[in-house]
Amino acid sequence: MKTLPKERRYETLSYLPPLTDAQITRQVQYILDQGYIPAIEFNEDSDPTVYYWTMWKLPLFGARSTQEVLSEVQACRSEYPNCFIRIVGFDNVKQCQILSFIVHKPGGSRF
Rank of each mutant, 00 (worst) to 15 (best):
K57H: 12
T12Q: 15
K6H: 14
Y30N: 09
V73N: 02
A22W: 09
R26V: 06
G108K: 14
A22N: 09
G107P: 08
T54N: 12
P38Q: 01
D91H: 02
V50Q: 04
E41D: 06
T3Q: 12
V73W: 00
Y30Q: 09
C96A: 11
Q27G: 05
L70W: 04
F84M: 02
L16S: 07
S78E: 13
T49A: 10
I37L: 06
Q27H: 11
I40S: 00
R110L: 13
A39E: 07
L4T: 11
G108E: 14
Y30K: 11
Y51R: 14
Q95A: 13
C96G: 11
L16K: 07
K57Q: 14
P18S: 10
G35N: 05
A75E: 09
S109L: 13
I24R: 11
L70K: 03
V88Y: 01
F111A: 05
D47Q: 02
C83H: 15
P38I: 06
L19A: 12
D47I: 00
A63D: 00
G108I: 11
C76E: 01
M1A: 07
Q74I: 08
C96P: 06
N82C: 10
V88R: 03
Q95F: 11
V73R: 01
T66D: 05
E72K: 06
S46R: 12
Y51I: 12
S46D: 14
D33M: 08
H104P: 10
E11R: 11
P5M: 03
C76M: 00
G107L: 12
N82G: 12
F42G: 03
F90C: 03
T3Y: 15
S109E: 13
K57S: 09
L16Q: 07
R77Y: 12
I85W: 01
G108R: 15
S109M: 11
T25C: 00
R110C: 10
I85S: 00
F90D: 00
A22V: 11
P81S: 01
L19F: 04
D45M: 09
C83L: 08
E72C: 03
L19N: 08
R9F: 14
P59C: 01
H104W: 14
S100F: 09
G35S: 03
S100I: 07
V28Y: 02
V50Y: 05
I40C: 00
S71M: 05
L60D: 01
P106A: 04
C76H: 01
V28A: 02
E44N: 14
K57V: 06
T12E: 15
H104F: 13
R9N: 13
R110V: 08
V28D: 02
N92P: 08
L4V: 09
E68L: 00
Q34I: 03
T66G: 03
M55D: 04
Y30I: 07
Q23L: 08
Y80M: 07
Q74M: 07
D21G: 09
G108Y: 14
Q27C: 10
R26N: 12
